[in-house]
Design a protein around this nucleic acid. Structure first.
Lengths: 316, 316
DNA sequence: ATGAAAGCGCTAACAC
DNA sequence: GTGTTAGCGCTTTCAT
């Protein structure tokens, strides 16, 4: 018992005794068993995090920020990648519960969040990241606004023949909202993106941007502007356009989304929408920690961050 | 007891009984407690991973590959970021042990690996990633060879006035080995990098590349070629050179290292050294799994992967 | 095919 | 400031 107290830095143990315990522990190369503690307390000093993709510059800063913040409190981070598969997401959340993590941060695949509500109801704090959540804490960005910023910029520059490249992913609201805000703003100026310039690709890698251009160039005419819903794809779009002898921005302007660090170093530096990804992680972690500190019954925190247009050479 | 068996799909339980158990479990919204199991078995279905930086395109594919492979076996991944701080690295490894992880994969900060030897001796499998390890399993790349490839290419192109930009990090062997192989090959051609062209910066971000150029341009003369030990920095180097009106590759050629996906989309597409980062993670995970499958006492696996020169516009 | 008993290493609650 | 007791939920072992 005294040993247990010594290890937890309880002040109910004399300094001398504590020292003796610690010395003995070293001699015996004793390693505390956090599982046993977790069993008793029905909770461990861990945070489970599920994102759509680990190897994605959109999510990396979030995971990194979370890790950095919670590790300062001695919490470990368990990561999971759902790969946009709702089943996998559920599985991770369930597995986290089986391990009795202290809290969970999820960037959900779809807007069906009932499994998260259940977890929350069972007492484990849950924060939804990069998407809104009616029934609990979330930290998201205003994606419709981001889409609007893009459209407004294009309209200001006088573009009317506008194309769109986006990941085919009906359930992923953020992209849907970007497109929604974009379309709505264009519609107000009586502009519509024709179907042949509305390209959907199956992923958001650089290569998918390349693929998108190939399909876009099959159209009878060429747009004067292209909105690409992620910078990674936009990099591929610009590269492929240049390879085809189409100049950016002289012949076609391109606007991306996310403002990844590489956007400024691109073949043609990208005009894009910056979202505070690091903040998303930071604030999510902060909310989770406050829940762990006992704010369990407080009202849900609803945080909506604003994106910003960053103007560079690809659409000056 | 029967319930326990039912959950582990033991075939010592009748199908009918199993079904009844599972139904009852759902009704009671029972969640198995993996901590209790871990307490009994003194080991959990988890893998601890420590890397120098999570938000680094060098490590991301490794973590992602590890996650993808071990998750197929139902193992969770606990991630830690040492930030090149040996103390933090040790702390993570210790914490992993306290949680009785099944195995550990570390990309170590320094070449002092005694703490890992101790862990291994205590029975937890350890794989060292991206660095060689005399006393245990490792998966690394031949960094000296990478440096040699760069030097050979520059020599072939007739460069003799050569600069070097690298992260200041004496303990990080990979960078040291790149520089070593590079220098040795140049020395064989009786070329030396003068001190004023040997720039050390405190980090490996894009911004540190920018900083490096500023310091390089203070030198009395300008080199005709620059080797930058990571692509992220090289992106900053190229950007800054162009901003200064110095053309790449006409005035100065630049060679990077890592071949991150963005290298091909850079302002000037980067000539660089490709390292199979995904394989590093994949093979590390494979070795760890084989250890968990009982190959505990087998000889250490020593895997050394070869880098490849990728020639693009920044040094054709 | 099922169950009973014991114990994994810890902490909460309660003595002293 | 220190020790005792009990029990967290599971698996191992042994019995039936």
């Amino acid at each position: 018992m005294t040993a247990s107290r010594a290890f937890r830095h309880s002040n109910l143990v004399a300094q001398a005794t504590r020292d003796r315990v610690l010395v003995a522990a070293t001699e015996l190369s004793y390693v505390p068993n956090l599982l046993a503690r977790g069993l008793v307390q029905n909770c461990t000093a861990t945070v489970g995090v599920v994102v759509l993709e680990l190897a994605n510059p959109f999510f990396i800063p979030m995971v990194s920020a979370i890790e950095s913040i919670v590790s300062k409190r001695g919490l470990l981070v368990i990561t999971g990648e759902s790969g946009r598969d709702e089943g996998k997401e559920r599985q991770y959340v369930e597995q986290f519960q089986q391990f009795r993590v202290g809290g969970i941060i999820v960037s959900p695949t779809s807007s069906r969040l009932d499994h998260l509500a259940a977890v929350r109801a069972s007492g484990t704090p849950v924060v939804v990241m990069a998407r809104q959540w009616e029934h609990g804490d979330y930290v998201a960005t205003d994606d419709a606004m981001g889409g609007r910023l893009v459209a407004e910029h294009l309209l200001r520059r006088g573009h009317r023949r506008i194309g769109l490249v986006r990941r085919e992913d009906p359930s992923h609201d953020p992209v849907r909202d970007r497109v929604l805000g974009f379309r709505r703003t264009l519609a107000a100026a009586e502009i519509k993106v024709p179907d042949e310039w509305d390209i959907r690709v199956p992923g958001s890698q650089i290569a998918h941007g390349v693929e998108a251009v190939e399909r876009l160039l099959l159209a009878s005419e060429r747009p004067s502007a292209i909105f690409v819903t992620s910078d990674r794809m936009a990099l591929g779009v610009v590269n492929r356009l240049l390879e085809q002898g189409i100049r950016v921005p002289e012949d076609v302007v391109v606007i991306g989304y996310d403002d990844i660090p590489y956007a400024a170093c691109a073949r043609v530096p990208l005009t894009t929408v910056a979202i505070p990804v690091h903040l998303l992680g930071e604030i999510s972690a902060g909310i989770l920690l406050s829940r762990l500190d006992g704010a369990a019954r407080a009202e849900p925190s609803r945080v909506l961050l604003s994106p910003e247009l960053v103007i560079r050479a690809s659409c000056p």
